[in-house]
């Protein structure tokens, strides 16, 4: 088991980061979608948003680790990609990072707009950094649309990975598997 990334494939750390974040981001999207429609008397009306906030902030922390790890590792390159595929892949991969940062930071701003801190599973709390009138509304719009953009990008990314898995014979899809 290789820890660091190589020219040929992603190492263990990158793979754990990638798959745990993929799972968390899809779960957060589903949870977020579901929780905003909850009835006021639902037993999950308070716990679902608490879970969403807590996991979201942990993902933001993990994303920071991931970006740092990306910067100190070589990038595997897909030898079996056409130049167009290579360019598209580069754009999608690079776009994920700022979109995920915006997604999670905007979520944080919704809950902290009035100076309240976010409690993460009762382990610790993350204080508010910016307090501004109506910040929650602006942050809410950004959070919603960035979430859709991330889902669209994740769909594109998954479709491309499946294409390499089933149409192309190369090792591209196995780099992260």
């Amino acid at each position: 088991m290789v820890i660091r990334d190589t020219r040929e494939r992603y190492g263990a750390v990158s793979r754990v980061l990638h798959w745990s974040m993929a799972l968390a981001v899809f779960a957060l999207f589903g949870l977020g979608w579901w929780m905003v429609g909850l009835d006021y008397y639902s037993p999950y009306y308070r716990s679902a948003p608490d879970l969403h906030r807590s996991v979201g902030l942990l993902v933001l922390f993990v994303l920071g680790l991931r970006i740092a790890w990306r910067l100190v590792n070589v990038k595997p390159d897909g030898d079996d990609l056409t130049p167009t595929e290579r360019r598209a892949s580069r754009i999608v991969h690079v776009a994920f990072y700022p979109l995920l940062v915006i997604l999670m930071v905007s979520g944080y701003f919704i809950s902290t707009a009035d100076g309240r801190a976010i409690d993460v599973f009762g382990w610790f709390s993350v204080p508010a950094l910016v307090v501004a009138p109506r910040l929650e509304d602006a942050a809410g719009l950004v959070h919603e649309w960035t979430a859709y953009a991330v889902m669209a990008l994740a769909g594109l990314h998954s479709a491309a990975a499946l294409k390499h898995r089933f149409w192309d014979s190369g090792a591209t899809h196995r780099r992260m598997w």
């Binding site: 919704i110 809950s111 707009a113 009035d114 309240r116 109506r134 910040l135 929650e136 509304d137 809410g140």
Partner: peptide, 16 residues
């Protein structure tokens, strides 16, 4: 109407 203020930003967002 958007100036509703219940001293809780997340709730006010929902109220709007």
């Amino acid at each position: 109407a958007a100036s509703i203020n219940s001293n809780h930003a997340e709730r006010d967002k929902h109220l709007r």
